[in-house]
Design a binder for these strands. Structure first.
Lengths: 217, 217
DNA sequence: ATACAATTTGACTGACCAGTCAAATACTAT
DNA sequence: ATAGTATTTGACTGGTCAGTCAAATTGTAT
């Protein structure tokens, strides 16, 4: 029954995600989104009950597609250390693509939105928190393999290291957005990841690592 | 000539800094600030030509007072390694005080504002960038001492390490704000700082460090 | 063809926004 | 006292905001 389904909802989601990523939640109005998507405001509120609900939906949608890409980057075909190198490269390239497309460093959509709205919209704060946890969880499998193969000590706290790595990436990506400059991200992200893992800095590209003893306390 | 000077301007600055720190630039209106400071909007625009100009002024003001505290924490009375421990403790305590006062983790005012407005208000973006550089510069003196006393290799790139440390702190403080949770900040900040310095994790409080060789490439 | 359901439209509301301004006030120097 | 200046006030503007809604449209099933 009814009309045939359309792409209206996903068009709104994609448009909103783009606009908010470049700018911010507060600086993008529902009217802006509707105008950019060429959809009337009435339709917007047919699909979303509020602007905040839309924001939460964009966060989920953006993260799911990001998750797929990351799963590919962290593919078990590569040895674990090279996976982390690939991760750092991926994060940088993603920002560079956004820079080429939008003319500025955009940062992490979830973190920017989360920080902006943390004190005002609990729905958004909770969603940001959830996604950051999911992001961190994606690293656990690779870390477990590193323990199994002796690259990390057996008493390593996997959750904790995963969290530290996520936090480190978040810091560098945020800094890049604030400074509107990608050079530190390009140069330091890999170094920082390997330090968190307790490994020496890789000689660019060639993963000839020396393992450092890292004791949990 | 004229009336005697009043504290109107500084009252506006302090009130605005507080409100924006807890919430965000976009979610705090000029009316909100005036109401909280019990000052009429006409007076606001007597002292500030725009909301963005006020924001820039609060950033400068907040940073200058922060700078004084940091200079004290990094006081040359302590050995360099203990200074960094004290820095980590200070950052945590500062957030805890804000939590007690405002009921939530507030994060870094400069970074939150900078991220929020980076794509919209160039004045704010530039100010955030400037302050992050000044913050990073404050670490250089201590790092130089560490080189001089052999705690860091002589070919260490001081600017780069200072920048990495600032970025690391920023990441953890931002993460704490987004998650509204201080436990990771408390536990991981010190670890992360020492990893960036290429030093082993200190055994809590007692700075019996082992130095790691850290080669620049 | 017609009834019914899903979707779209555009005009609307009332609140709030940043910013303006002429007039009032309060102080100081003479 | 009075003239001049610094500061404060409150009422105002025009625009934008999130959100509403009744009516129109477009499809589908019978």
């Amino acid at each position: 029954m009814g009309r045939s389904p359309t792409d209206t909802k996903s068009k709104l989601l994609l448009t909103a995600a783009d606009l908010i990523w470049q700018s911010s939640y507060g600086n993008v109005s529902v009217d802006d989104i509707c105008k950019a998507a060429d959809i009337k405001k009435g339709s917007f509120y047919y699909y979303f009950s509020s602007k905040a609900e839309l924001a939460v939906a964009t966060m989920e949608e953006s993260f799911v597609s990001y998750e797929l890409e990351i799963m590919n980057v962290l593919s078990p075909n590569l040895p674990p250390i090279q996976r982390f190198e690939a991760l750092a490269d991926f994060v940088y390239e993603k920002q560079q693509q956004a820079y080429a497309k939008y003319g500025r460093v955009c940062g992490c959509p979830c973190a920017s939105l989360g920080s902006e709205m943390a004190g005002n919209e609990q729905l958004i704060q909770k969603k940001a928190d959830e996604i950051l946890h999911r992001q961190s969880d994606m690293l656990k499998e690779t870390l477990q393999e590193m323990i199994d193969s002796g690259l990390l000590p057996p008493n390593t706290n996997i959750s904790n290291i995963a969290c530290q790595i996520s936090t480190s990436i978040l810091g560098q990506v945020m800094m890049a957005r604030i400074q509107n400059n990608l050079s530190n991200l390009k140069n330091d992200l890999k170094i920082s990841l390997f330090q968190t893992l307790g490994l020496k800095t890789p000689i660019s590209g060639i993963s000839t690592m020396l393992q450092e003893q890292q004791n949990g306390q």
